[in-house]
Design a protein around this nucleic acid. Structure first.
Length: 267
DNA sequence: ATGCCCCGCCCCGCGGGA
């Protein structure tokens, strides 16, 4: 069987609902991992995606973060949040908050995590340390599935460009997050767990960027970054028959600033 | 043309994104 899995930082599932339904209808993924829902679990458009044949599991609290998994292949063993997931202590908060940034489910023959890794904001900011801790918690959380015989992958917005080739101009990111050694080391640690970066092909130009800032004509000028990633275990990676970034979904008004990444598996 | 930022929030400038 062929299984199509995709990941998309949707930047508000409410504002993007028409675009989401249009994209599902066209690309027809069997499984879709969503990030940045910006809505509470109860406000997720379960009925709208059900009409297109998708079951959904969502994990959101409101205006920030939020993740979901849509599936046509069944949706079982849902886990909300990473085991041992660190919380973030905001400047004006008394207690750290455990944010909705991860959800897992088994969809037919495949198990997936949909993750939205913390941004980090600035190097050495409390949010940057939180980002590094979060990636370490992710690594610990996937050890068993990563070593298993069942195809397994972590898909989502990792907020890290794995190499200098994954940003349009390395010099433009000097001193900024997403490209630092510590972030890349925390990301690369997933490989010691047995996971590999499934690099998609671009549909245009030479690099498979997945994010372009809304400002300054970044998309037409292809000033992008590859930060939406798929980390698969051996059975998953060996089944990959194709992977691409659907930059068409980034065109026009009312789009997310991220493009969906599609991975096809021959199982 | 892909075209100069956009989201949510107890209304509107601000925090956050990267």
């Amino acid at each position: 069987m062929t299984v199509r899995i995709a990941t998309w930082n949707i930047n508000s599932v409410t504002a993007r609902l028409p675009k989401l339904l249009e994209w599902l209808d066209g690309a027809k993924p069997d499984v879709l991992c969503l990030q940045e829902l910006k809505c509470a679990t109860d406000s997720f458009p379960f009925e709208a995606v059900k009409e297109l044949g998708y079951e959904a599991a969502a994990h959101g609290t409101g205006r920030w973060n939020g993740v979901a998994i849509l599936s046509k292949l069944g949706l079982t063993d849902v886990v909300r949040g990473l085991p041992e997931q660190p919380g973030y202590l905001a400047d004006d908060a008394l207690l750290p908050e455990t944010e909705p940034r991860a959800i897992a489910a088994t969809c037919g023959p495949v198990r997936v995590w949909s993750v939205y890794v913390p941004n980090g904001r600035e190097v050495d900011h409390a949010h940057y340390r939180y980002k590094l801790e979060w990636l370490e918690a992710l690594r610990r959380s996937v050890l068993e599935d990563a070593a298993g015989a069942r195809p397994f992958a972590v898909l989502g917005d990792f907020n890290v460009a794995p190499t200098d080739e994954d940003v349009y101009d390395r010099a433009a990111f000097e001193g900024l997050t997403h490209v630092t050694e510590r972030e890349r080391a925390a990301l690369a640690a997933l490989q010691t767990a047995g996971l590999r970066d499934v690099v998609p092909r671009p549909l245009k130009y030479d690099r498979p960027y997945t994010y372009w800032d809304y400002r300054a004509l970044c998309f037409p000028k292809n000033r992008g970054m590859r930060i939406d990633l798929t980390y698969g275990n051996k059975p998953f990676v060996e089944a990959v028959s194709d992977s691409y970034v659907d930059r068409e979904a980034r065109k026009g008004k009312g789009t997310s600033d991220h493009a969906p990444v599609v991975v096809d598996l021959a199982l």
